[in-house]
Simulated assay, not measured.
Amino acid sequence: MIKLQSLRQHLLASVEELRRNPEQLHTFVNDGKVKFSRGTNLTHQYTVEAQIIITDYSGSLDTVMVPLLQWLNTYQPDFIEEEAVQIEAEILSNTHWDLALTVRLTERVVAKVDCSTGRINAEHRMPEYPADACPAKHWQLYIKHPENAEHDLVAEWDSPA
């Protein structure tokens, strides 16, 4: 799954704690399906529930969620808004927690068959769907907590595209 690998790389690059400790990030595919129509070509589509687990996390949910939503907005724009991400968490202490996020990903594979040569050319498609004409390529996330007067810088990363 090229999309899941791309999402994983984006989170590792975007979330400071994961950049320092990549072993905290685990990704799984649950309930995967392959959509396929009979015919000469072997083009198909993967649809999976991708589970992203971050263990022993001490950061804010926003520092994970904002880059995740940015990536989904670019590469998986057909998500159902009310169900874009499912969240589960286990509080380990006052400062650390395990976080499980589930997103539905689809990935199309165009596989063209040349019957005369026996060659099959397969290509994974990962089109980008830019949400707007925002020219920024580097992002900084500032969060204002109720007890603070100012917004604090909590994360920085580059665009997923």
Score class of each variant (00 low, 15 high):
residue 11 L to C: 04
residue 20 R to A: 05
residue 135 P to S: 11
residue 147 E to K: 15
residue 49 E to G: 05
residue 46 Y to K: 09
residue 32 G to R: 10
residue 51 Q to H: 07
residue 70 Q to C: 10
residue 3 K to Y: 04
residue 73 N to T: 14
residue 96 H to M: 10
residue 158 D to R: 14
residue 76 Q to T: 10
residue 84 A to E: 00
residue 153 L to V: 13
residue 51 Q to P: 08
residue 23 E to D: 15
residue 149 A to S: 14
residue 117 T to P: 01
residue 27 T to N: 07
residue 117 T to W: 04
residue 35 K to E: 15
residue 138 H to R: 12
residue 54 I to H: 03
residue 39 G to L: 02
residue 161 A to E: 12
residue 80 I to E: 15
residue 154 V to D: 04
residue 71 W to G: 08
residue 106 T to Q: 13
residue 127 P to Q: 01
residue 151 H to W: 01
residue 158 D to W: 12
residue 15 V to Q: 09
residue 78 D to T: 13
residue 136 A to L: 06
residue 65 M to V: 11
residue 120 I to M: 03
residue 90 E to I: 14
residue 125 R to E: 05
residue 137 K to E: 05
residue 133 A to D: 15
residue 155 A to G: 15
residue 114 D to C: 06
residue 125 R to L: 15
residue 98 D to Q: 08
residue 38 R to A: 14
residue 34 V to W: 02
residue 120 I to Q: 07
residue 34 V to L: 03
residue 17 E to Y: 09
residue 110 V to L: 13
residue 65 M to P: 05
residue 124 H to C: 03
residue 33 K to L: 01
residue 152 D to G: 03
residue 98 D to S: 03
residue 29 V to L: 13
residue 45 Q to C: 08
residue 59 G to E: 05
residue 48 V to E: 15
residue 126 M to N: 09
residue 156 E to L: 02
residue 79 F to V: 14
residue 62 D to P: 00
residue 111 A to P: 07
residue 158 D to C: 07
residue 136 A to T: 02
residue 70 Q to K: 15
residue 45 Q to Y: 05
residue 85 V to T: 10
residue 30 N to W: 09
residue 19 R to H: 13
residue 105 L to H: 11
residue 113 V to K: 07
residue 158 D to Q: 15
residue 78 D to N: 15
residue 88 E to V: 02
residue 143 I to S: 02
residue 25 L to I: 11
residue 25 L to A: 11
residue 54 I to Q: 08
residue 118 G to H: 10
residue 137 K to A: 07
residue 80 I to T: 15
residue 28 F to G: 06
residue 57 Y to K: 07
residue 118 G to T: 05
residue 161 A to D: 13
residue 39 G to M: 02
residue 128 E to F: 01
residue 91 I to T: 15
residue 134 C to P: 00
residue 14 S to M: 12
residue 46 Y to A: 03
residue 63 T to N: 05
residue 131 A to S: 10
residue 26 H to N: 14
residue 123 E to R: 12
residue 13 A to T: 01
residue 66 V to C: 10
residue 85 V to Y: 04
residue 16 E to N: 13
residue 105 L to F: 05
residue 142 Y to T: 00
residue 73 N to S: 14
residue 19 R to T: 08
residue 125 R to K: 14
residue 155 A to D: 09
residue 70 Q to P: 00
residue 115 C to L: 09
residue 5 Q to P: 00
residue 21 N to T: 15
residue 5 Q to I: 04
residue 140 Q to F: 01
residue 73 N to L: 12
residue 113 V to H: 15
residue 127 P to E: 06
residue 88 E to S: 12
residue 140 Q to S: 05
residue 157 W to I: 01
